[in-house]
Design a protein around this nucleic acid. Structure first.
Lengths: 205, 205
DNA sequence: TAGATTGTTAATCGATTAACAATC
DNA sequence: TAGATTGTTAATCGATTAACAATC
């Protein structure tokens, strides 16, 4: 893998994965940057540039083997590995995410955390709900890759800080705030309200 | 409003809104691009460029009046208006969104649609669940701004096509597919699986 | 007025597109 | 081989940053 890959490229990887999977399911075993361009909507030039960030996956005059290319994308994204998650804040969104399944990404939700005594000790879809107080103890005993943050905005930074002190390296943030985190911690925001505001802006055009 | 505003600018608007609201709540009534830069994390130069896409909201030598600037952002985003939504596909995600509240955006969910006979005719949080079959009839009688699409990927394009035939101009898409839509239809995607794949990629760095 | 900060133009940077030699 | 398509370099485009005159 060469140098630094830009976020613009990284955010296109899931689309390559998705469309290549679709092609495999349809029994297509050969393609080209021109054909992919027509299907995905990126320019053929951009597609070749993107792939060449990671290696040489094609063959001049032939194009790409769909299965092989798909396999490379799987490895690049890291879909050949399993990951452990915890969810903090057991509201509606958390419940929806637990039922969501996460497509082909091998994530398992190991535990749920909440500070509501009525919830603590119960289970949701087979996942136990623990007291947020014991977060540090839990993290010291379990190997967790990512925390899904579904707490109110005012609590989000405090919880994030505690997670990072425990050495957690990635946070999937559904709280409506921007988290302060050092460079080496991955914070992926899903700002639903921001997304909705983009719609209202565009409606009024 | 000058010419064409880039999506990069549009996606920063909710952040301006959010931080300015916070400043109002704290009683701050004057600010500058330099101060906003420190709080939000965009460069002062970028902040001035962004605002000047929409007008002149500041005063040389003084800076910006927080309340006035906030009011301008409200108008630019369109938060001074009310919007009507419907939700199609009444699964966990739909239920989570109905309970979500949408912050300060004045959206009301008017109806839910599903094709499960067990759900049709019931209510969820005071919103009636209608048969997806009557979508066209419903849309002809009600003034709906946005449809929230929470159906399985394989059904998404079909439903989207029906919505667009009825003249719907914006779709908030939670289905894991890219919708084909003409230029004038706003499609805002929340691709949770893509977002999660971004995390797996970054974890493996 | 003097100091401060905007609005705006110019320079830079990075990402996308075009072109084409390499080569299957 | 001839045709096709990659990998990669060069050109273009757009967005961000720097600079500064205008002006409060």
């Amino acid at each position: 893998m060469k140098n630094k890959i830009s976020m613009a490229v990284i955010r296109r990887l899931p689309k390559y994965y998705r469309y290549l999977k679709e092609m495999i399911d349809k029994g297509v075993d050969r393609t080209s940057s021109r054909e992919l361009s027509e299907i995905i909507g990126f320019s053929a030039s951009q597609i070749r540039q993107d792939f060449n960030n990671f290696g040489e996956f094609g063959q001049q005059g032939y194009g790409y083997n769909v299965k092989a290319l798909h396999g490379e994308i799987v490895k690049i994204i890291g879909l050949d590995k399993e990951y452990n998650m915890i969810v903090i804040g057991c509201g509606n969104l958390a419940r929806a995410l637990i039922n969501y399944g996460f497509g082909d990404v091998g994530f398992t939700i190991q535990a749920l955390f909440d500070n509501d005594p009525a919830k603590i000790g119960t289970e949701f879809h087979g996942v136990e709900i623990l007291d947020t107080n014991i977060l540090e103890t839990y993290l010291s005993k379990n190997d967790i890759d990512t925390a899904i943050l579904c707490v109110p905005g005012k609590n989000a930074q405090g919880i994030a800080d505690r997670l990072m002190v425990c050495g957690l390296k990635s946070i999937w943030n559904f709280s409506p705030v921007d988290l302060r985190a050092p460079e080496e911690v991955t914070v992926e925001n899903v700002h639903l309200v921001d997304s909705l505001m983009t719609i209202t802006y565009l409606i009024n055009k």
